[in-house]
Design a protein around this nucleic acid. Structure first.
Lengths: 233, 233
DNA sequence: GCTCGTCAAGAGCACTGCTCTCGTTTTTTC
DNA sequence: GAAAAAACGAGAGCAGTGCTCTTGACGAGC
C-alpha cells in the first residue's frame, strides 16, 4: 500500500526524505535558527519555492525534525534500558540516564530542539505528542516494575506530598499504574534532575565548573535513584 | 565621574538605556529570535544604522540583555532568600527556589536567554561570567551555613562520590568552603533539579502533565532539600 | 574661529520565508 | 487512447533581516 504506488509518489517520498536529511545536517552544524529552506533547496539543486511543495512552511519542516528527534531519542533510551536485566532496576535507571545523555551530547542541536527553549514563533502541533512520551515511558515502566517487585525504598523522613496534589499527577500516574503518590512525585523530581543535568551540560552551564562530567553525571544519577527509592540490589 | 561629563555623553547613556529597554520589551513579547535591531530603531524614531553607534552588533545588544538578566535573576534570588531567618536553612532553600521560579515565570523569554538553548551563532563573551554566578552563590552560602551549623543530615545509604571526583567540583567548592565532597555533590544535583524543573515548566514540558504546578514544585524542592540533607528544623 | 570627532541618515548588499504565476509533466478520468 | 486534472519545478517578486559604507550636519576642544 504505502510502498510504491505511482512513480510520482515514490520520488516524492524520496525527495521528502532527502529534504529532512539535509535539514537535519544543517541543524547539526548551524543550529535551529540557522535552518534555512533556501539553503536546503540550494544544496538539492532546486529552486527555493519548490521546497514548499513538500513542506508548506518552515515550521512544518521543523515539526518533522522534532518528531524524528523524539523518536530517535526514545529509541536510544529504549535500547539502552532494554540491555539491562529486568530485575536490576537501578541498572535500568542508570542505563536509561546514560542513553539520554549520550544521545544528547551526540546530537546537541537536535536535543535543544526537543528540550531547549522553544523556537520563537513556532508552536508544536499535536502530531508531536505520541513521539514525545517515549523516553519518559521507559522511566515510568521501570519504576512500576520496581514497585511491583517491592524494590522501592524511599528515604526515611521524606516529606509527604500535600493532599492537594493527589489528583495532579494524571499523566504520570498512567505511566506507572498502581504506584503510590509519594513514589510518583519522587520519580517526577528524578525526571527533572536527569534533564536538568543534561540541559546544563549540553547548553554549556557546566563549562569551567565540572571537567570530568561523565562520572559526575553517573554519581548524580545514583543519588537521584536513591532519592526515588531505587537502592543498589 | 560616571555621571554627566559632557552633554554628549549624557545623551549617549540615555539613548543606550532606551535601546536596551525597548529591546527587553521586544524580547518579552517576541522572544530572542524576534529581537530586531531595525524594529528597535523604528520604535525610537531612528534609522537602523544609527543603532550601530551604540551596539556594534546584534550580539552585543544580546550580551547586554543577558548580563542584565543574570543580575535581575540574581537579585531576585538574593532578596527572596534574605527574607528568611538565617538559621532556617530549609526555609532559605525554598525561598530561593521560589524566587527563581517566580522570576522565570514572570520573564520567560529572558529566562530562556539565560538557561535555555544558546542563541544560534551567539557566543557569550567573558563579560557575562561575574553576573552569572549570583544565583548559585546564594545556594552555596546557604549550604555552607547549614553545614557549619551542623544542620546537614544526608540520607542514609547514600552512594559515596567516587574518588575520581574528588578534585572535580572546583567551582562549587569555592562557593562552599569546608563542606565535604558528598554534600557538595548532593548540592550540585539539587541545583540541577531546581533548574530542570523550571526549564520544564517554562518551556512547556509540563503542559497537560501537571496542572497545579506551584504546590508540585514546592513539594519537589522539599524532596530535593531532603536529598541534600536539609531537613525541617 | 577652525578643525576634528561624533552622530543620524540613507543607499545598498546579501540573505531570509513566503506567494504567485507560468509552462511542463504525470496521473486520473472518461 | 484522448481529454481533464492534479502535481511539479522554475522564476520573479514582496517584505523583512543584519550589517557596511558614504554623506552631510552638529558640537566640543585647541
Amino acid at each position: 500500500m504505502t510502498a510504491s504506488r505511482t512513480a510520482r509518489e515514490r520520488v516524492r517520498a524520496e525527495l521528502t526524505r532527502e529534504i529532512t536529511d539535509i535539514a537535519r545536517r544543517q541543524l547539526a552544524t548551524e543550529g535551529a535558527g540557522g535552518l534555512s529552506l533556501r539553503a536546503v533547496a540550494r544544496e538539492m539543486g532546486m529552486v527555493s519555492s519548490a521546497i514548499y511543495r513538500y513542506f508548506p512552511s518552515r515550521d512544518d519542516l521543523l515539526t518533522a525534525l522534532i518528531i524524528d528527534g523524539y523518536n530517535a531519542l526514545g529509541e536510544a533510551v529504549e535500547r539502552g534500558e532494554a540491555a539491562c536485566p529486568r530485575e536490576d532496576h537501578l541498572g535500568r535507571w542508570l542505563a536509561a540516564c546514560h542513553a539520554v545523555r549520550d544521545w544528547a551530547l551526540a546530537h546537541p542541536h537536535e536535543y535543544a530542539l526537543l528540550y531547549g527553549s522553544p523556537v520563537p514563533g513556532y508552536h508544536a502541533p499535536q502530531d508531536t505528542v505520541p513521539a514525545r512520551a517515549r523516553d519518559v515511558t521507559v522511566l515510568g515502566e521501570l519504576i512500576a516494575d520496581a514497585w511491583r517487585a517491592g524494590a522501592v525504598h524511599l528515604p526515611e523522613r521524606l516529606p509527604a506530598p500535600p493532599p492537594a496534589l493527589a489528583s495532579q499527577a494524571g499523566a504520570f500516574r498512567q505511566l506507572m499504574p498502581g504506584v503510590p503518590d509519594d513514589v510518583v512525585w519522587a520519580a517526577a523530581a528524578a525526571w527533572t534532575t536527569l534533564y536538568g543535568w543534561i540541559n546544563f551540560e549540553v547548553f554549556g552551564q557546566f563549562n569551567n565548573v565540572i571537567d570530568d562530567r561523565r562520572p559526575a553525571f553517573d554519581h548524580a544519577m545514583r543519588l537521584t535513584a536513591t532519592a526515588m527509592g531505587l537502592t543498589p540490589s
